[in-house]
Each structure stands twice: as C-alpha cells, then as structure tokens.
Amino acid sequence: MNYTKTQHTKPYAAISPSLPHLSTASKSVFVVGGSAGIGKAAAIAFLEAGCRRLALTGRREAVLSAAVAELKEKFPDAEVVTYAADVADEKGMEAAFSKAKDAFGGPLDIVINGAGAVPPLKPVATGDLNAWWSGFETNVKGAAIAARATAKYGAADAVHLYLGMAGMLFPANGAFPMSGYAASKLAAVKVMEYFGAENPGLRVVSVHPGIVTETEGGKKMVEESGMDWPGDDINLSAHFLVWAASKEAEFLKNKFVFAAWDVDELKARKDEIAQSPELIIGLNGFPRSV
C-alpha cells in the first residue's frame, strides 16, 4: 500500500527527534498506553525531542513503574508522571488527564493514544464473542474516551494522534480471521475522523505504525496467525509520531497515514493532501459516472 515511492522500515534523518524544528521542549505530552510497546518508544522519542513534561498511563502498575524508572534514569531533568488506568475506564482516564493538567500547570499540548487490544484471531461464527467484543471496548470506546479527555483537558490547538492499523483496509481473508481487530480499528479511525471534524481547533491524525513484531500485540499476531511477518523497527513509528505532532505535519490534519511513508514526499504534496479527500476512509470505486 504505497503512497510514497520511498517506504521506510527504520528511522531516518528527516524524522529524527534531535532536529531543532521537531523540538517538543515547550510541550506537555500525554501518552495513553505508554508503559510498553510503541507507546513507551514514543515517550522516549518525545523526551529525546526535548519534552520535559510527560504523562503516561498503563493498565499494569508494575510495568508502568518499571517504565517510568527507566525514563527518569535516561532523562533525570524531565517531569514524568504516571497513572494506572485502562483506556476503556472513563473515570480512570478522566482522573489521569485532570491530574496531568494540574501537575503541568496548564492544558496538554500533545496526546498519543497507543493503547490497543488484539482479540483472539478466531472466526466470527465460532470464536468467543465476549473476547471478540473486547477489541471494540478498548479500540473504539477507549479511543472515544481518550478523545473526549483531549477535548476537555487539551490546549485549544492540541494534537491528538491515534494508532490505527493497515489491516482494516485489506479485503477479508478467511484464513486470517482478524475481524475483531480489523473492524474495531476501522471503527476507531472513523471516530477519530468525526472527532477532528467536530473539534476543528484540534489536529487529529490516525497513524498506522507498521508491523512491529516486538510488541505484545505484534507477538500475538505472529503466534496466532502462524505467519512469518516482516517486522518494522519500533523507533520508526515513535519518531514518525514526533514528526506528526510538529508544525511541519499540519497538512495531515484529519488524515490517516502510514509511518512508513516518506515525509519529504508527503510534504511535497502537502497542498494536494490537505485540500482533497485523500487519506480518509472511503468506498473504493464510488461514486462512479454511469
């Protein structure tokens, strides 16, 4: 699914967090699902970009504590606050966002929702329906909860980045029964599209991070599918998120993009992208003149 001629699998110079124009030194950043996986990698990337006001949430207190200890060791001058909360727990997330805003003395500038659930890869007809539905609880309801919190506790021009997935765009494959994951992610990206349209002051972007097999979800996909997946470097997505939150990426407002796409090629088409319906979910081949 190429949109740019160059497709990346590893970090590269144009999205390096060390670039001055990508600096987040003046920004407060909130990472939902930041205790592990891509969320944690993103937290590190934003700290490398200069962020010194960072909030993380995670479901597991022990994992969250270990993550913050690691971050504080690497970045001792950063203020890192954590809150144990499930993204689908509205009261817990509300409290976390509220406390982060108070801790940082003002509204949040950048929110990354990296929380996600991969339900068992089972057919709709025979799989456990409650397990299947768990994907919607986390990936759709959780996305809405995080979005509502951004609208309430974020700055008027806050950036909200949601981690989607490319599999939602592929035709269904009976040999790879991932309806719970693909359908919930598809729904969530559409929710993000509405969220952005309803809150035009915010910049909402959905990002496919690539196939990151070293995360828990990635390992689960590999194990349950029995397929040999080519993995992308976790820092490709982390660094891309830093770039996507920058002013340089303002033209991606309300779009769905891949971390693998080359940002220089995207920038060369920024007017076309910003002023067209490209990179939003639609129906292929429709409408058609008949």
Results as ranks from 00 to 15, higher is better:
Gly106Cys: 05
Tyr12Asn: 10
Val191Met: 15
Ser16Lys: 01
His8Thr: 07
Val290Thr: 09
Gly33Met: 13
Gly167Arg: 05
Val222His: 05
Leu266Pro: 14
Ala78Ser: 12
Pro120Gln: 04
Val189Tyr: 11
Pro120Phe: 01
Ser225Thr: 09
Ile44Gln: 12
Leu22Asp: 12
Ala166Arg: 10
Pro76Gly: 05
Glu250Asn: 12
Pro20Ala: 06
Ala156Phe: 01
Glu272Arg: 06
Ile234Arg: 05
Pro20Ile: 00
Ser289Glu: 07
Ala143Ile: 00
Val68Lys: 14
Val32Leu: 13
Ala245Pro: 09
Ala14His: 12
Val204Leu: 12
Pro11Cys: 08
Gly167Trp: 07
Ala36Trp: 04
Ile110Val: 15
Glu137Gln: 14
Asp271Ala: 14
Val111Pro: 06
Lys185Met: 12
Gln7Asp: 01
Asp271Lys: 13
Ala158His: 06
Phe256Trp: 11
Gly164Glu: 07
Val29Trp: 00
Gly217Leu: 08
Phe258Pro: 05
Leu279Ile: 10
Ala249Gln: 04
Ala259Arg: 09
Gly226Cys: 10
Glu61Gly: 02
Gly282Ala: 15
Ser179Lys: 09
Glu193Ile: 01
Gly106Ala: 07
Val263Asp: 01
Gly196Val: 04
Pro107Glu: 10
Ala197Leu: 15
Tyr162Val: 03
Pro76Arg: 10
Lys101Val: 03
Glu278Gly: 14
Phe75Val: 05
Val31Asn: 05
Ala45Asp: 11
Asn113Ala: 03
Ala147Leu: 07
Ala260Ile: 08
Arg288His: 13
Gly39Asp: 09
Pro76His: 02
Asp262His: 05
Ala117Asp: 13
Ala13Phe: 10
Asp228Ala: 10
Ala260Asp: 10
Pro277Tyr: 01
Pro123Gln: 07
Val263Arg: 04
Phe258Lys: 11
Ala14Phe: 03
Ala43Thr: 10
Ile145Phe: 01
Phe136Lys: 09
Ser134Lys: 12
Ser16Glu: 10
Ile273Ser: 06
Ser134Pro: 00
Pro209Ile: 00
Ala259Asp: 02
Leu186Tyr: 14
Thr9Pro: 00
Glu250Ile: 02
Ala238Lys: 05
Arg288Val: 08
Glu198Asn: 13
Pro209Lys: 01
Ala67Arg: 02
Ser206Thr: 07
Thr215Cys: 06
Ala143Gly: 13
Asp77Met: 02
Gly39Pro: 11
Ala249Val: 08
Lys270Cys: 13
Gly105Ala: 05
Asn254Tyr: 03
Val242Gly: 03
Ala96Cys: 06
Ile38Gln: 12
Gly226Ala: 08
Ala14Asn: 13
Ala78Lys: 07
Ala96Thr: 03
Ala146Gln: 03
Lys267Ala: 15
Ala274Asp: 11
Phe136Cys: 09
Ala259Cys: 09
Thr9Asp: 06
Leu129Arg: 12
Met221Cys: 08
Ile15Thr: 11
Glu272Asn: 04
Ala156Met: 04
Thr4Cys: 11
